[in-house]
């Protein structure tokens, strides 16, 4: 059996991807560029024009800002975790790494909803506050609660790639630098950190993308005033029933994420060259 014969094995899957991956995306584009009138689909760019309304632009902006904040916090919180877990004294404690990843296997809706019982007015934290004589506080249904939910859900996505890059990085280089008289700070900022950038980049994409498009976290913890792009899309499909407009928002979201993906990976390439020269 030659290579050409073996290539035939991919045909069922190629047909499959045509129907279930490519065709749906084409339909989304098609819907986004049409409006329905009298059972007919008419070409129109009005869906995109509608998105320029400040009411919607604010939602878009909020999604991006919260996702960026979430990414930064995940780096600040997750990098030290990955760094410690990859260090010599923890290298044989694989169970610890497992502990940091295990929460991902519990239903994320419930994990997120569980924060409601911790943060709500009659919740766990407020009961604690009362015990120590603090007033009860409103901690739910605002942007900070959404941000907390995002960081909580996506932190493992930052820890894992940074950890695996740090694990794989050549200890010899670091020891050489130490032998040549670099102090710990120099070793970290000139070697460890630049070497771990590829891991950070994949961490950043794995955190930023789902954070931008989430609608569950904002739905559960954000309340009605703190809508994100995801909620906007969901509304068009389940409440407003305007699939054409919903498709246009989805296209904008996809383009936004694709652009950020390209930017992130470009940074990665530049940095690699930067290390070489």
């Amino acid at each position: 059996m030659t290579k050409i014969h073996r290539r035939l094995f991919s045909i069922p899957y190629l047909v499959w991807t045509g129907i279930f991956i490519i065709l749906p995306l084409i339909l989304v584009f098609y819907y986004s560029l049409t409006i329905e009138s009298g059972g007919q689909f008419l070409f129109s760019t009005s869906n995109y024009a509608r998105l320029m309304d400040p009411v919607y632009l604010i939602v878009l902006q909020r999604s991006v800002v919260l996702a960026l904040l979430c990414t930064v916090i995940c780096i600040l919180l997750g990098y030290p975790v990955a760094y410690i877990l990859a260090s010599k004294e923890y290298i044989n404690k694989g169970f610890l790494l497992f502990l940091f990843l295990a929460p991902m296997w519990m239903n994320f809706l419930l994990r997120t909803y569980s924060w409601v019982s911790i943060l709500e007015r009659n919740g766990f934290l407020n009961s604690l506050f009362e015990l120590v004589g603090l007033p009860r506080m409103d901690m739910l249904y605002n942007n900070s609660a959404v941000l907390l939910g995002m960081v909580y859900n996506f932190l493992p996505f930052m820890i894992l790639p940074v950890y695996s890059v740090l694990r794989r990085s050549d200890q010899g280089i670091i020891e050489a630098a130490q032998d040549l008289g670099a102090n710990p700070r120099q070793v970290f900022f000139r070697l460890t950190l630049p070497l771990s950038i590829p891991g950070m980049i994949s961490g950043i994409t794995m955190v930023f993308m789902p954070a931008t498009s989430t609608f569950i976290i904002s739905d559960l913890l954000g309340g009605a005033q703190n809508m994100l792009v995801g909620n906007l899309i969901e509304q068009q499909f389940y409440r407003a029933n305007d699939w054409h407009y919903g498709s246009a928002i989805s296209v904008v979201l996809m383009v936004l994420l694709l652009l950020s993906f390209v930017i992130f990976t470009m940074v990665d390439k530049n940095e690699e060259e930067g290390i070489l020269f």
Binding site: S213, G230, F237, S247, L257
Partner: peptide
């Protein structure tokens, strides 16, 4: 690249695109 679309594309876009299909 096509194979990776469902992995990279946001869940919600995948959901609505299949629903439309």
């Amino acid at each position: 690249t096509i194979n990776n679309i469902p992995v990279i594309n946001p869940d919600i876009v995948m959901g609505i695109s299949l629903m439309i299909l």
